[in-house]
Design a protein around this nucleic acid. Structure first.
Lengths: 142, 142
DNA sequence: TTAGGTGCAAATGATTTGCAATAAT
DNA sequence: ATTATTGCAAATCATTTGCACCTAA
């Protein structure tokens, strides 16, 4: 369980000034179980009674992503989502209920080695998402 | 080597009326070696002297994707790209020169089985991209 | 003639830019 | 004072919607 105070450290470690808005944005992204979009971050700030302009949020997100504190994702929605940068995992997006789950795996590392061997291409990061039906929706909608 | 005439068949097989613009869009996407965005498709139509509104192109792309003739992709650019739907492969996007290569693999099928076992999630489609440095750019930029 | 295809104008949504106001060191 | 942070207005870019017009079966 992380507390707000840790975000101050995280920010400082990343060489960023720790401001209330930055801490709050980091906190909101962290307390979220699945990747969150900018509009949701903005309204979450409002409900936390933290006054911050949308533009400021965009700029903070750019900074945090640049410094590697958060990861920027796309789920074929025409917008970005963010999550805290943690151990490697891939997202499972249910096409029926929209729920986003995640899974870790041991396959991709080997696949990236193969990419290096076959293509000489060095993978720095990847974007891997699976779209389908979660267990619950298979029962309901089928 | 496919000819325009095949696109007529492709469209009809998909249950779509074969119009000049639809054939041209399909042709442009097919002659492209890597996934192409909408703006490029529109200007390509212009240079082929085919008059078509941007909106029409969007609608055609939606149709073609819906019918499975083309695939809709995202490369973290905030816009969509399209390619002909072919055998399964993943994209290698060079962060230095922007070149987009592709690779086939035998890993993902097994990973999707594991997802089914571990999570009960049934994968219908996936989005898998690797970002890094292509062989040429490793020589130059390093 | 009738449904589907297209064009044009305008709306929407996400993101970015410029610049002035503000806060922190 | 000087630099970085934020707010506000407006611009930009990708995509969508509404509606009228046109065209092929």
């Amino acid at each position: 369980m992380k507390h707000q105070i840790n975000h101050e450290k995280d920010l400082q470690n990343a060489g960023l000034e720790s401001t209330p808005v930055r801490q709050a944005v980091l906190h909101i992204i962290e307390e979220q179980k699945s990747p969150i979009d900018v509009a949701s971050i903005v309204s979450s700030l409002e409900s936390h009674n933290i006054k911050a302009d949308k533009v400021t949020v965009y700029r903070i997100l750019d900074l945090l992503a640049e410094k590697g504190l958060i990861a920027r994702l796309e789920f074929q929605e025409g917008k970005f989502r963010y999550e805290v940068a943690t151990s490697d995992h891939h997202h499972l997006i249910c096409l029926n209920c929209g729920k986003i789950d995640a899974i870790e795996d041991n396959w991709i590392e080997d696949l990236e080695k193969e990419i290096k061997q076959k293509k000489g291409f060095i993978v720095q990061r990847h974007s891997i998402e699976f779209y389908g039906l979660c267990a619950e929706c298979q029962k309901k909608s089928t």
